[in-house]
Amino acid sequence: MRKHFAFVALALCLGAGFSAYRGGAAAQADPRQKAYATEPDWNDPQRLIPLNYQQARGKRLFYQYCVWCHADATPAGPSNRANLNPVPPLLNDGAALNGKSDEFLLEITTLGGSAMGKSAMMPPYGRTLTREEIQALIAFARAIAQPPYQPPAPR
């Protein structure tokens, strides 16, 4: 019986060691392997953030519609951010956006800033983008947030 117990213990140790090895390999794996697309961390361009399909769709929409005011560098060069008062948050600004619910971000993008008691300089996109597209944008914002976004615990 004791012999049997020792055998089981040995097997457990081996199993734990093996899964630790596997875990280490997974941590070093190329984030592109499983991801649909990637976005460089805005604060650390060497670090690639893996994006799923929805987040990748949000990324495309962001670089078409939103990048002009919600990033410091744009495809055309300078950003419009500095021209605006109040200054709009960077899309990866977790300190500003992590506290806002998905519902709030959906509403302010759909209806515009003035409808939500914020700056009217944020225009309404509800008649230009679909609800799914705006949800994808929010998913992208959550993916690149620094500090990282933690979804609220389900109630």
């Binding site: 002009w68 005011c69 300078p78 419009n80 021209n83 605006l84 003035s114 700056s119 009217a120 300089m121 944020m122 225009p123």
Partner: peptide, 19 residues
């Protein structure tokens, strides 16, 4: 200037946006 704040993206003369 007030309701829609087009100056966020457009400029007239000196003030306004670049988009």
């Amino acid at each position: 200037e007030v309701k829609y704040q087009c100056q966020a993206c457009h400029s007239i003369g000196a003030g306004g946006g670049y988009v």
